[in-house]
Simulated scan of single mutants.
Amino acid sequence: MNPQVQLLHARTALYPRDRRSVAVARDLTRVTLADWGLTRRGDEVLLCVSELATNALLHGVPPGRCFRLGLTLTTDGVLRVEVHDSGPGEVRVPGPVWDAEGGRGLLLVSALADGWGVREREPGKVVWCEFRPGGSPPPY
């Protein structure tokens, strides 16, 4: 990160291993975007939060544990979404299987966000995506 860039806002929350947590994480994100005056690309951000939270619940959060959603905004306007989980597992983007019921979440994140990635933590991992002010929404 550029040394001139600083953290402007941050918000974080823990969510239990419960399917309802995805909707609650999305609601927090919607409120945060409004609080921070970020109206552009809100639908893309909300979809990415849904996908990352769902993946954490399905593949990364062991029973009895939580996942953490972190939202940050830097002074250069970059919004970063991070989902932390404590489970093992490798994150990979599968090739599309058109008749499968799942497996498209990270494909969507890679198409909608301006960048995304994974980093290890102990225990578990962090899957993140970023939205830059000059980034383009998908052409639909």
Rank of each mutant, 00 (worst) to 15 (best):
Y15I: 10
R17K: 15
R20E: 14
R20M: 11
V22A: 00
A23D: 10
V24R: 15
V24Y: 14
A25W: 00
R26E: 15
D27K: 14
D27G: 10
D27F: 13
L28H: 07
L28A: 08
T29N: 08
V31F: 09
T32A: 10
T32V: 09
L33Y: 05
A34R: 14
A34W: 04
W36L: 00
G37K: 02
L38Q: 03
L38F: 01
T39H: 12
R40Y: 14
L46C: 07
L47N: 04
C48E: 01
E51A: 07
L52G: 01
L52D: 01
A53C: 14
A56E: 03
A56F: 04
L57D: 08
L58F: 15
G60M: 07
V61M: 05
V61D: 00
P62C: 11
P62D: 13
P63T: 06
R65V: 08
C66P: 04
C66W: 09
C66L: 03
F67H: 05
F67M: 12
G70K: 13
G70A: 14
L71R: 03
T72D: 13
T72H: 12
L73H: 06
T74P: 04
T74K: 09
T74G: 10
T75L: 10
G77D: 06
V78Y: 05
V78E: 08
V78I: 14
L79A: 03
R80A: 11
R80V: 14
D85N: 12
D85R: 06
S86L: 11
S86E: 12
G89Y: 10
E90C: 04
R92A: 15
V97Q: 13
E101L: 15
E101K: 15
G103T: 05
G103A: 03
G103L: 02
G105C: 05
G105I: 02
L108T: 12
S110D: 12
S110Q: 00
